[in-house]
């Protein structure tokens, strides 16, 4: 890395930009009283984003598929969560499934 000032500027802009995006919602909503329906809509939108994040991070790597071990682990964790297993078990089972499959040579 031979361009320290430029890297510093890039980190600075990324930090300010990210913080601005984070505080935009709280700053906006402190000025307006949000109707109940709008709040429901925004909560659902956050769930939609998080679910899409689950799908893309479980199934894809870069622009391609993520192999088998990771989706299998997430699926197993998801089934346990759906059956209302304790959170700790869900997380450990997902990780152990993926790690175990990889030990066996599954990509």
């Amino acid at each position: 890395m031979n361009n320290t000032p430029l890297v510093l500027v890039a980190i600075g802009v990324l930090a300010v930009g990210t913080f601005s995006m984070r505080i935009a919602g709280p700053a906006l909503r402190s000025r307006f009283e949000m109707p109940e329906r709008a709040q429901q809509f925004l909560a659902a939108a956050a769930i939609v984003l998080l679910t899409a994040l689950v799908a893309t991070s479980a199934l894809t790597e870069g622009h391609g598929p993520a192999g088998i071990a990771r989706p299998a682990g997430v699926l197993f964790g998801g089934i346990l969560a759906w059956r209302k297993a304790p959170f700790v078990l869900v997380v450990v089972a997902a990780a152990a499934t993926a790690a175990g499959l990889r030990l066996l040579g599954v990509p």
Binding site: A58, A66, R102
Partner: peptide, 13 residues
């Protein structure tokens, strides 16, 4: 360690 599977599972749960 399978952590790449743990994080989507956390959010999913």
């Amino acid at each position: 360690f399978g952590l790449d599977a743990a994080f989507p599972a956390v959010l999913l749960a």
